[in-house]
């Protein structure tokens, strides 16, 4: 829900930035781009000591010092056993990623300021299970196991700050299994896109009910008086229609539904959101209105500069309206 804090810039980061760019360019050459399945072949799986692996190594050196100092043959034996186990674990960690197929899946739209979720499909066609695979775009890691011959679907969150297309950044897949001494990782550049709707205005003015279409009057829609029943809460429903008494009693979010008058054509007009000079603020208000009108079960049309959506109702219409608002003024990414 919170926008990610901007990355802190230090003098070190400034020094390392050119290296970082070269590294990224090199990675992008190695890994295929776009919405295609990607198999993690040998040359795309990287492996190195993890942070706890470093602690493990320091501990081994300390133990070796003790073994030498006190001339303890069994301590030597233990150090060598642990070192050999770490060596063997390199291949366990490596093969946990090797040959795994990654495929981009769907992407859930969201409102600006919320979190978009991208689906990634993992396919394991090997004979052995794969353990604790961690996937992430940025901070948060989503982990999954994949049984032999099976697939797993992982939904990855990515916070969306701006409306429009949110393009998934580089995907990192990593594993520390089994000992955590080594970590193997790889990247995928799927460039999945999720649609980010404008952030709905908080506490917007009532819907501009105007049969005459002059855009001035703000009447209470008559349909709102005719209570029709309850249905489960959906994303985008106005909080004003939530049956809070029911929620307190039953622990389930229900929304009051009203009979709308389909004949009553409601136009949500770019110009109706007057008083707001900022285009983004207008889009926010229109978004809030679309949600309110949909929740009220009204038929409504959307009029934007250069784009008009005829009055209709239903979820498909709502999504089309939201998409139009999301992409208003933004050239379609190709």
């Amino acid at each position: 829900m919170h926008p990610a804090p901007p990355p802190r810039r230090t003098w070190l980061a400034g020094l390392l930035a050119p290296l970082q760019q070269r590294w990224n360019r090199w990675l992008q050459r190695r890994h295929p781009h776009g919405i295609v399945a990607q198999r993690l072949t040998q040359n795309r799986v990287y492996i190195f000591l993890s942070r706890s692996g470093l602690v493990f190594c320091i501990m081994l050196v300390a133990m070796l010092g003790g073994a030498i100092n006190y001339d303890l043959a069994l301590a030597y034996l233990l150090v060598f056993l642990l070192a050999s186990m770490a060596l063997a674990s390199v291949f366990h960690t490596f093969r946990n990623l090797l040959g795994l197929s990654l495929m981009p899946g769907r992407a859930d739209p969201c409102f600006a300021g919320e979190v978009a979720r991208f689906e990634v499909i993992l396919e394991n066609d090997s004979r052995l299970p794969r353990h604790n695979l961690g996937l992430r775009f940025e901070g948060l890691v989503e982990a999954s196991d994949v049984a032999p011959g099976d697939t797993a679907r992982v939904w990855l969150p990515l916070s969306a700050s701006k409306r429009g297309w949110l393009v998934a950044p580089r995907l990192r897949i990593e594993t520390h299994w089994p000992l955590g001494v080594f970590q193997a990782w790889s990247y995928a550049f799927f460039s999945q896109r999720a649609l980010v709707y404008p952030k709905p205005e908080n506490d917007p003015p009532p819907l501009p009910m105007a049969a005459t279409g002059d855009g001035e009057g703000t009447l209470t829609p008559r349909g709102q008086d005719d209570f029709a029943g309850l249905r489960p809460f959906q994303r985008g429903d106005s909080p004003r229609h939530v049956a809070w008494k029911v929620a307190a009693r039953d622990d389930a979010l229900m929304v009051k539904e009203f009979h709308g008058q389909a004949a009553e054509a409601l136009w949500l007009d770019w110009d109706a959101a007057s008083g707001l000079i900022d285009a983004e603020a207008r889009l926010s208000r229109l978004t809030a209105w679309v949600l309110a009108a949909h929740a009220a079960g009204l038929a409504y049309g959307l009029r934007l500069p250069g784009e008009v959506l005829a009055a209709d109702q239903g979820e498909a219409h709502r999504d089309a309206c939201l998409a139009a608002l999301a992409l208003h003024g933004i050239r379609e990414a190709t």
Binding site: I68, S84, M85, A88, P178
Partner: peptide, 29 residues
């Protein structure tokens, strides 16, 4: 069981290290 398997897989290299790793006459301190 997996830990046991991992230890068994480590045995050959452990034995070689034990025999060959250069031994230093202690004590260091």
């Amino acid at each position: 069981r997996f830990a046991g398997v991992l230890m068994l897989q480590a045995l050959p290299v452990m034995a070689l290290l034990f025999v060959f790793f250069p031994r230093i006459e202690g004590p260091l301190w």
